[in-house]
């Protein structure tokens, strides 16, 4: 979706403001939100692309004015409601009022913690040979799906070079909407800075994205 989360190349947000000696969490509740999100995902309530999509669907003004973990909380509440794990009355009451919905992998317990400490596995068996090889010229498709995608707007329509092939991976555009893995080849595609940003751009700049095969056409 063409949401405000797709920020590459936007102006007007001001300078980057690094904080010296920043704590891991700025308040206790931030850690609890992070842990709940990871735990429920690991228990099978949703996948990572559904959780990204839930944040992307927050109203633009809310997305832009909320801290990072506030967005996580709001997205998680949406996921819990949409997927039937919690209802609005329970959120309002602050207590469970109805029987639980079965989690695909069951309750998340301390024995499950180590499993969430690394990313999931996204490599999949390839249903077909890779269409592209390193060195191939490709164009990022001019596509604007109304749902989740991982092709940022700033590369759409532009021509780049395939640099690496990362194998065949589960496809976020499908996973985000409950469509299953739909495995696709994944490539690092490199674009010239001036191709993306025009003649005034830094001539030394190149930018790459990791693009799934359905995002690309031969150029």
């Amino acid at each position: 979706m063409n949401g405000v989360h797709d920020m590459g190349g936007m102006d007007g947000f001001g300078p980057v403001s690094p904080q010296a000696d920043e704590p891991v969490f700025h308040a206790v509740w931030e850690g609890r939100v992070m842990a709940m999100m990871r735990a429920m995902g690991a228990a099978g309530a949703w996948n990572i692309d559904m959780s990204r999509y839930s944040r992307e669907t927050l109203p633009p003004d809310v997305y832009l004015s909320s801290s990072y973990y506030r967005k996580w909380l709001l997205g998680m509440e949406l996921l819990l409601l949409d997927r039937g794990f919690v209802d609005a009355g329970e959120i309002a009451a602050g207590h469970a009022l109805r029987p639980a919905k079965q989690l695909r992998r069951g309750k998340f317990t301390p024995a499950d913690v180590e499993r969430v400490m690394s990313r999931g596995k996204f490599g999949r068996a390839a249903p077909a040979p890779a269409r592209y090889r390193p060195g191939d010229r490709v164009r990022a498709r001019n596509m604007h799906p109304p749902t989740h995608t991982r092709l940022p707007r700033y590369v759409r329509g532009h021509v780049g070079l395939v640099e690496r092939v990362h194998g065949c991976h589960a496809f976020p555009d499908s996973l985000a909407v409950g469509g299953g893995d739909d495995p696709q080849w994944l490539y690092t595609v490199v674009f010239g800075g001036r191709d993306l940003w025009g003649d005034d751009a830094d001539p030394t700049l190149t930018v790459s994205v990791d693009a799934f095969e359905p995002y690309l056409v031969t150029a």
């Binding site: 609890r32 842990a35 709940m36 735990a39 429920m40 228990a43 309530a45 909380l73 998680m76 509440e77 819990l80 794990f85 919690v86 329970e90 959120i91 602050g94 207590h95 469970a96 639980a100 989690l103 309750k107 998340f108 317990t109 301390p110 499950d112 913690v113």
Partner: peptide, 17 residues
């Protein structure tokens, strides 16, 4: 409130969080 709900429903164990 959310942590209370998830715990009461038996989805997560607070020690795991």
């Amino acid at each position: 409130a959310l942590e209370t709900i998830l715990t009461e429903k038996g989805y997560v164990d607070q020690a795991a969080l």
